[in-house]
Design a protein around this nucleic acid. Sequence first.
RNA 1: GGGCGAUUAGCUCAGUUGGCUAGAGCGUCUGGUUUACACCCAGAAGGUCGCAGGUUCGAGCCCUGCAUCGCCCACCA
Length: 719
Amino acid sequence: MTTQPAIPEIFLSPYNHTAHEASIYALWEKSGFFNPDHLPGERQEAYTVIMPPPNANGALHAGHALFVTLEDMMVRYQRMRGKKVLWVPGADHAGFETQVVYEKKLAKEKRSRFTMSSEELYAEILAFTQENKSHMEGQLRSLGASCDWSRLLFTLDDRVKEQVYATFAQLEKDGLLYRDLRSVHWCPKHQTGFSELELEHQERKDPFYYFQYGPFVIGTVRPETKFADKYVVVHPDDARYAGYTHGQKVPVDWIHGRIEATVIKDEAGDPEKGTGAMTITPWHSKVDWEIAQRHGLDVVQIIDERGKLLPIAGAFAGMNGMDARGKIVEKMGKMGLLVRTDEEYSHTVSVCYKCGREIEPQLKKQWFITMEPLAKRAIAAIKGGEVSFVTERHQRVALHWLLQLQDWNISRQIAWGIPIPAKICTQCDHGVVDIDDTITQCQKCGGVVEQDPDTFDTWFSSGQWPFITLGYPDGKDYRDFYPTSIMETGNDILFFWVVRMLMLGLYRTGTVPFKEVYLHGLVRDSKGEKMSKSKGNVIDPTEVAKEYGTDAMRMAYIVGNVPGEHINFSLDKIRGYKKFANKVWNIGRFVLTETAGCTYVTDLTEQDREHKNLFDRLLQEITGDMEEHRYHLAAEKLYHYIWHTFADSIIEESKGILSGDDAHAKQSRQSLLLYLYTVSLKALHPFMPFITETIWQHIPEGVWKDAELLMVARMDGFS
RNA sequence: GGGCGAUUAGCUCAGUUGGCUAGAGCGUCUGGUUUACACCCAGAAGGUCGCAGGUUCGAGCCCUGCAUCGCCCACCA
């Protein structure tokens, strides 16, 4: 027979989160249970989550708090279900993103990266990220993240580089890597090339000009690129141009005088568009470049990397392309070459996703990955169910993207990143992979070689994150924890990261990097608007947690958050859950007061048995919700039960029973209250870890308190 | 040009395989110093679930069409 001790004094004052959160986190961390190697009891099944490493270039924002909440909830739940849980934290150097942040800082100091050496810049950004990184780790702790800090990895650590280089070498060995002249998406401001994912598309209305080009009339929106055009392309079946043959030379009076143009017949000519005849500028257009490739045509650069016209533009040389446009049209008008102008031509232009400047395609030699075989394998993995998406529509979106994937340009002309392990010939521009840094002479022409000045697209390395963090190929963690259980991240990086991890993980290890994908949406403000500094509606999760408690904030992130959909972050909602935290605390006060010194019984009254059965059924239902990733429903049901059934109904009903003279009914009710309360704390712990653990630490030993730390208490009896 | 999502109380949103007398937070109104909790309790008002058809014993949920808003993709002369 066991009796319940008196209520601890702490419950006599209201719950004050600021007094407990830090010390509770320290208690968890000290226990060592964040590390699966130290978890108590027999644990067979592994449960692995790799944290999307936050960018080490600033403070955590609402989006970070959301993923920490979701992932921490998942791992805490699984830990309590008796699994061998590993959650690996990381920090991302975030290549281009961070460099842009740092460039803004430089600009404020009236400095520029273009007057610094790459080494200088790299060293400064490294110091900057190191500082941010340690700050960020503190913030993750304050959010309650129960990740294994002993396995923390930074995306520029040697182990990462080593495997990224190994992948690079493997791709070359398999013939999936090439360095070749290609049309590259070039940002004239940031001075780097991009993959097509880094572009944004803008609808624009511009004048469309028709020019007399010998016997043809050609149309263009970009007269400033037309100086060297000497090919006129028409569709082979276009009857209007049947009189011309492919390769036929035609004299043309053009901007700089008489030239000889060549007629090219190519399917790319669209008879429906304009006059059906066009001239091409292969250096500054991907489509034109492809036409030029098909027919072995000459290519000429017209605009330099900064967007200025080259000497070929004659009097216009040195001018910005856009600024020159009007003047060029004016001159051509005077020459009698302008046929007419359509003022409102609507079309789409590609702009840099970061600065919004128009992308100027440039022909450049860059490292490309042949994506088709990688995509094929990923498609098979998705279709074969090796990986499944919790939000099914994202699976369709991913498949669709994989089916039209282009080769991936992984070269970036920025300092902040992993250097590409290759040598470039100073004479013939030939590039060769050189992992061990041993090549000193060009294999093609014998010329002197230099280290490739470029770095990898940051997504190329982060695309390998799951197997690298776990120590592929021979690490113990790789054997024990790969493939990971679930990849939880933002739906905005589905292509950038998730699909690439899938392809690269399959490519290197032969196995999917994660069995499930759970995508969350963007965090918006209370009105459903995107948070941005310029709107001034950015909410700092650290501040919110300080004011309302981390638990309240976490509940607000979970309840009503449908997988894949946007979530509105409202202070009103958080306030509501702060009240709930207080409710949970006060239920404890009541239960512990009323059960002090009581004796446990198992033969409950019929009424109490009914209460217990209803509660157990709810737990089963919630367990089902958790297993099926319906976390928002699980949390809401629990909230509703605890407040409106346990507190409002059962506790109110208990008051009469506890003051009545039926001794057995009283004992039965006391036992029931203790059971409901203790088990509620367990079920609530993944959502509200701090308050539940705080209470757990102050609850006297009793029959239902079966673990020192609530974090590792067992919750596996309900289904 | 193609694809996707949203449309439910005054506001912001849930609603799992069709069973709902449609819920939550905030807000509104009425009444409460009850053996935890005013960060509270009891109660009330408030919804033809975007519109029009259809399937079904039964539809917020499934099907068809339409409307409005938003997002993604697309080589954009």
